[in-house]
Design a protein around this nucleic acid. Structure first.
Lengths: 210, 210
DNA sequence: GTCCAACATGAATGACGATTCATGTTTCAT
DNA sequence: ATGAAACATGAATCGTCATTCATGTTGGAC
């Protein structure tokens, strides 16, 4: 039996040329999806930007949806790996938060299309979208639990805290990096961090806090 | 001169019947945009759900885009009004935060499509999208400044705090109301609030805090 | 150097959907 | 009651796209 295929998922490229073309398509797709959004993005535009013919797209990807999902999952995996590496070896948990925020802002600075791509995903494949956040949250929760157990952090529901912190990062990134086009000034960064660390309530003890 | 029109913006309805039909279309559009997303939503589907003919749509709206924008702006205006009323007359600012969070969660509980509609807006009209958040932030900043001046809140950059808090609310709402389908349990709500009020750092004074 | 799997091509197919338009129907001010 | 403005209709128009396919081209294993 010589393969029963007809329109199954394309195999991974077998040669270097194939790999190169596939990557060109992924890069182009990240641009186009990021700027136009999923539905307005067209395969024509992606292939043109990648410098290949329309049909070539289907040599490497099963569908418009499948390349999009691959993009989202890759971005998520890379972000999580980046954060993991950034905080590896840091021993105080509060410092982990600071460095994590810094690394997050850095990452999205160099992947300007992440936001739009991830948000579009909500409409393309809800499960993939949720997985993006639940996996991120899971990593977070693990760290938070440890810090709470050790008494480094106030004892709160770790998942609630994880989503709250992700929300802060997301919105601060949107406001400054996405809208302003640059990392927030130190003054902003420090104040966000102070809010996370100490909350809105001023300290009674004037020696601590700002 | 009897009107030079041909395809200008439709006038507001002049009769009660017109008003009713227009509202049916807006309601249907909220459903359809919220479920399908902007691009996948079709005028056919909106008019069918509203129980009118396709052509009727263009009696009241200039385009698919214009009804969508009207929806976003109305939702934003209503949310801001709701929050304003909810916190009116509350004198301690921390209590304002608590009640505001509560009211926010309540509002989105009864407008399950808000999230998706607002997020789609990023791709439909970026300016409208930003305005949604900048207007919300502006209201917030005003309140925060006052509380900081009075010493009720730690002195931090009010805009940074506003976006951080909006981020928290947004993500907590997404995680519990959107994904779980119900308001977060009290335990979650309280912990989110505790984080906002006191931060991650545990109190040295064991009398305060959880 | 040959040859074949892998890769590349771009025109054709088939759907779908926003908007327009020519034509009816209803409302209400007089 | 009545006529004109408002409102309602749904078929027709004009584009746009994802995906397929029949056909060429290429690289590297032997």
């Amino acid at each position: 039996m010589p393969e029963s295929n007809s329109s199954v998922a394309p195999a991974k490229p077998a040669t270097a040329r194939g790999q190169r073309t596939r990557n060109k398509l992924l890069d182009a797709a990240e641009q186009v999806f990021g700027i136009q959004g999923y539905d307005r993005a067209s395969i024509v535009e992606i292939t043109q930007l990648a410098g290949v013919a329309q049909g070539t797209f289907y040599v490497y990807f099963e569908s418009k949806k499948s390349i999009f999902i691959e993009l989202v999952e890759t971005l998520g995996t890379n972000l999580r790996a980046t954060l993991r590496e950034a905080v590896a070896g840091i021993d105080t948990r509060l410092e982990v938060e600071r460095v994590g925020l810094e690394a997050f802002l850095q990452f999205i600075s160099s992947h300007e299309h992440m936001y739009k791509i991830v948000r579009q995903c909500e409409f393309v494949d809800e499960e993939v979208y949720r997985a993006y956040y639940t996996r991120m949250a899971a990593g977070y929760v693990a760290g938070l639990k440890g810090a709470m157990k050790r008494g480094e952090f106030r004892k709160l529901n770790p998942e609630a805290v994880a989503y709250a912190l992700m929300g802060i990062f997301d919105f601060v990134g949107m406001r400054w990096i996405l809208w302003e086009g640059k990392k927030p000034p130190k003054r902003i960064f420090d104040d966000v961090f102070a809010l996370v660390a100490y909350g809105l309530t001023p300290d009674e003890d004037p020696r601590r806090g700002k």
